[in-house]
């Protein structure tokens, strides 16, 4: 069951606070594989968080390397268990959309540089610094782990009337 359907709001799981992963076992490995398969299958998708496929655990994947905004600066495929932002700076507004809320986009303000700590599926602790589009994508996916949708962060009323463009 690799590619999972993306849950759409108002599915209640999307507003849930997700639980920390205590132990990385085969279930987590399967979950990470499913997230990657689901992300790759989504047209233009640059990330998927566990609650988007119905799992309330703090796991998400991001890969902006194939995206036109992310090509220049990225860390490739990031598999993140219990990700935490330990430092952030800067702020910029970008129009965002979300596979869980189709047909709507809005301007969201995000930190432009973040320092991130997470556990990889093999158990290794990793710390990275990133910026720009990759930083935005990570913040968007991490919001899902707190039950926060981009609609909760829209700062401008000039919301998108047209179908969102894929990232």
């Amino acid at each position: 069951m690799p590619i999972q359907p993306i849950l759409r709001y108002p599915h209640p799981v999307l507003k849930k606070l997700c639980n920390r992963v205590d132990q990385i076992d085969t279930l987590i490995h399967t979950l990470v594989a499913d997230l990657v398969d689901t992300m790759v299958a989504g047209p233009g998708s640059v990330g998927v968080a566990a609650p988007q496929i119905g799992v309330t655990l703090r796991v998400c994947v991001v890969d902006v390397s194939k995206n036109r905004f992310g090509k220049e600066h990225n860390h490739g495929l990031l598999l993140m268990v219990n990700p935490e932002i330990i430092a952030r700076s800067g702020s910029a507004t970008m129009r965002e959309g979300c596979m869980s809320i189709p047909d709507y986009t809005g301007d969201v303000e995000r930190s432009t540089e973040i320092t991130l700590r997470f556990t990889e599926p093999d158990g290794a602790e990793r710390q990275i610094e990133t910026r720009g589009f990759e930083a935005v994508a990570i913040q968007h996916e991490m919001d899902h782990l707190d039950g926060v949708l981009f609609l909760d962060r829209v700062v401008s009323i000039k919301t998108g009337l047209f179908r969102r463009k894929n990232y």
């Binding site: 759409r8 709001y9 108002p10 189709p102 047909d103 709507y104 809005g106 009323i157 919301t159 009337l161």
Partner: peptide, 21 residues
């Protein structure tokens, strides 16, 4: 000072979005 609304979601589960400034 500004307001917009949009009906999104599916026919089975219509979602209403209201943004107000």
């Amino acid at each position: 000072t500004d307001l917009n609304t949009k009906l999104i979601g599916s026919e089975a589960e219509p979602v209403y979005v209201l943004m107000l400034e």
